[in-house]
Design a protein around this nucleic acid. Structure first.
Lengths: 291, 291
DNA sequence: CGCGGTGATACCTGCCGGGTATGACAGGGC
DNA sequence: GCCCTGTCATACCCGGCAGGTATCACCGCG
């Protein structure tokens, strides 16, 4: 009778997450850079130690059980937390000042975000008496949450309602309306204002779709990967998009922006991990709150 | 040249957290049930692999560097997340239903909380068509956050502003005022209402103090560990306390409750880990939102 | 009935996590 | 000054286990 262990090594979590994502021991083993048999054994040991069946192996394939789904989610979170611990510790580097570390901050911002607010924030913070260096990490549309969770970033600019603030502390910075961006020559471009219903049902201009957390909502419109592509598609008269007011700064002369009366307002937040105790971060938040 | 690893085993985190908490290799090793030399070696390996100095060893003792403090905080979070993964997976047990697990929920409530709201919530949920079993876990004044983080609980009743909702999703349930609880015979007990200033400065009745996250604020009043002790001290005329309105249900005839005009309102929330995807939890939240 | 592809089993080996014994060094009595 | 005590680091050894290779058992399919 071996002692029943109630802990779980990072390695075992990595193995299980790989198998649960691939649903295939061979491919998972390859991804992990190891042979398949030890991986099979490791997962069996894991199941025995947890006393729980995680995978349903039957002919031709592997499926997750309910417990397996739970462990996949919770395990990813635990792996993220571990990776964050490593990254943030490394970033704190040779800092040996007591009473809370000071040091460089990594700020995650979507590349397409308004640079005006960012510039204002960075300038104001740089003017503070003992400000630290801030590294700006440009990312895609919905990556900020992941970057904060796994420690690649310390703080992020997020845009409600697209980004979820769940699990983070945050400070609201600005609120703005949204506009419809149309080809300049389109009949609707002449209107003073529009409603969401107006732009949703234009027969010749399907509404552009961008990914939320990696997946696209179904619809007739084109799938948008970056801002340049969107601008081009609008200019070509192939789509219409709903974007925040501040996006006007990147519009072309071939574009027209019409305010939307009933679109939900976009709130830009400064967000950071809920448990953070960095003094440097606190300074940045204080600056942001005064904007 | 060994391959630079950028991961970190749970075991190493446990070791470091133990040393960082004890600030003493010998005691930490004892706590971990191992000898001191391998622990020393493990920490050295950890420092080498991270490329960061975590501990300042000089004559007579060990201190944390800035990076060490970061790793202590982040490491605790990672260990909690790992423990949560184990507990929640075990709890999901033999559940093999696809599309999200169903199963028993653990609800954390402080023992001193009002039972009326809890009863209403549990009754309403039990009346739902496909409700699951709910295990109520009674805890101390500020433990709910920890219970949610390390997976011993799935959902909790929290009371703002005493509990911090940072890092959790939540749904506000009720708001109530606060009252001052005095010995029945005290002159102030005859008043219709009181202000915080009134009860803070009573010379013969120092304000009771209870712990926030394990530590007591400084002050002249007695340190409170549980509700019975508090009731006794008030009845004896040794202290006065500020408590939510609903606490009237446990008052004695020797007590008098006087409403406070300027005390912050107490909001009871249902709170759960931000990333939770349990269908059972969703059902409970839905029920709570309808209350 | 072979054949490809799956995960499980058997068995071996080398590494490393952990143990004991001991060293280096700083303080603190007397 | 001395030794004694308490601290962490070093040296060395050993056993278990993580990982590899070879192979099996099973299923579906042409």
């Amino acid at each position: 009778m071996l002692p029943a262990v109630d802990t779980l090594e990072t390695r075992e979590l990595r193995y299980f997450v790989a198998v649960a994502e691939e649903l295939h021991f061979g491919r998972a083993a390859e991804r992990l850079g190891m042979a398949q048999p030890p991986l099979s054994r490791a997962i069996q040991q894991l199941e025995r130690r947890l006393g729980v069946c995680l995978l349903q192996r039957d002919r031709r394939g592997v499926r997750l059980t309910g417990a397996g789904e739970v462990l996949l989610h919770e395990g990813r979170a635990a792996l993220d937390a571990t990776a964050a611990a490593v990254r943030r510790t490394r970033r704190a580097g040779g800092d040996d000042s007591p009473g809370g570390p000071r040091g460089r901050l990594v700020l995650a911002v979507k590349a397409a975000a308004s640079h005006e607010l960012l510039r204002k924030l960075l300038d104001a913070y740089a003017a503070e008496p003992d400000s630290a260096e801030i590294e700006v990490l440009l990312c895609g549309m919905c990556e900020q949450e992941e970057l904060l969770r796994d420690g690649r970033a310390d703080v992020a600019l997020m845009h409600a309602p697209w980004n979820s603030l769940a699990g983070f502390d945050s400070e609201a910075l600005t609120t703005e309306g949204q506009v419809a961006v149309l080809p300049a020559g389109h009949p609707l471009a002449a209107r003073e204002t529009l409603s969401l219903a107006d732009v949703r049902d234009v027969p010749d201009l399907p509404l552009a779709r961008w990914p939320t957390h990696g997946t696209y909502a179904p619809g007739p419109g084109p799938e948008i990967h970056n801002q340049t592509q969107l601008a081009q598609l609008i200019a070509l008269g192939r789509t219409v998009a709903v974007v925040p007011d501040s996006a006007r700064s990147w519009l072309w002369t071939e574009h027209a922006a019409v305010p939307l009366t009933d679109a939900p307002p976009v709130v830009t937040h400064l967000a950071w991990p809920a448990h953070s105790r960095s003094l440097t971060l606190a300074g940045l938040v204080r600056t942001a709150a005064r904007l």
